[in-house]
């Protein structure tokens, strides 16, 4: 079991407060790990800390053994971590082709960019079909696919995907999850954040439940899906439940409580 990404006791947040409160999480190479949890649990913040949009105040973030916690988003990108952000993130008045090419912004050779573009267009035919249209003229689902295509320009070692189904109608949502599943089948390492827990966990090798900035449960996607205590976490009643069951004190922000054995079984 090789962890490509290790987050160790991370604290991070905005202004005076911390959203991540001592989060510890390993992401294994070649697997799709899905983070779920109630609103405000810190799911998207985890991705921001990994991609460098937010620096952890305390704790370690290591990628392939190297500390990346203090690196700029650009330096982290060069390490091979690419994030597909939440919401629509294409440059709306630029063409689809320009958008995807910009995904290779950090590539120095023009020929390399063109070659990657060819590969990406073969993988995502919509890029070729709509190459000259402005990105803003595409439907929500199509835009999401182009965002995936843009991220693939750098052939990422770790793909971070933040709430890909947000704002999409159910039929299109299916298409997005199918695409993620295909990327996973191709052996990509993916860290997915998903509000729609069922859809996310169904395609995940590893499921992780976050609550108040800490990991509450970790297991195989199917196990987490079947775990009755997940519902309680979503309802916000898990704190009481845990205290009663484990007789543990309420989290103080320094300790990590994991009620499931670490790692996928």
């Amino acid at each position: 079991m090789t962890a490509i990404l290790e987050i160790d006791n991370a604290f991070a947040g905005y202004g005076g407060g911390n959203i991540l409160r001592g989060l510890t999480l390993n992401v294994e190479a070649g697997k799709l790990t899905c983070l779920v949890g109630p609103n405000g649990a810190g799911k998207s913040t985890v991705l921001k800390v990994v991609s460098g949009l937010l620096h952890p105040r305390k704790g370690e973030v290591r990628f392939q053994g190297q500390s990346i916690g203090k690196m700029s988003p650009r330096a982290i990108l060069m390490q091979g971590i690419v994030q597909v952000p939440q919401d629509r993130s294409l440059f709306s008045t630029m063409t689809v082709r320009e958008n995807v090419l910009l995904g290779g912004f950090t590539l120095s050779h023009h020929a390399e960019k063109e070659q990657r573009l060819e590969e990406v267009m073969t993988r995502f035919p919509i890029v070729r079909e709509r190459a000259k249209d402005t990105a803003g003229s595409l439907s929500g689902g199509q835009q999401k696919l182009v965002e995936f295509a843009r991220a693939m320009m750098l052939d990422p070692k770790l793909l971070l995907v933040d709430e890909p189904s947000m704002g999409l109608e159910p039929r299109v949502r299916r298409l997005v999850f199918d695409t993620l599943q295909e990327l996973r089948a191709e052996g990509r390492t993916i860290l997915l954040v998903e509000q729609n827990a069922r859809s996310g966990l169904e395609i995940a090798d590893v499921g992780v439940v976050l609550e108040r900035g800490q990991v509450r449960l970790k297991g195989s996607g199917a196990d987490i899906l079947a775990d009755p205590s997940v519902g309680a976490i979503y309802m916000g009643t898990s704190g009481r439940l845990k205290t009663r069951v484990q007789d543990a004190p309420a989290p103080t922000g320094n300790d990590v409580i994991e009620s499931a054995p670490d790692g996928a079984s």
Partner: peptide
Amino acid sequence: GWSLRATVLNRQAAQLIGID
């Protein structure tokens, strides 16, 4: 110019594709 236009259109997305 491209990086500037990208930053105008979506600052965070620009950051995430490696634009300083």
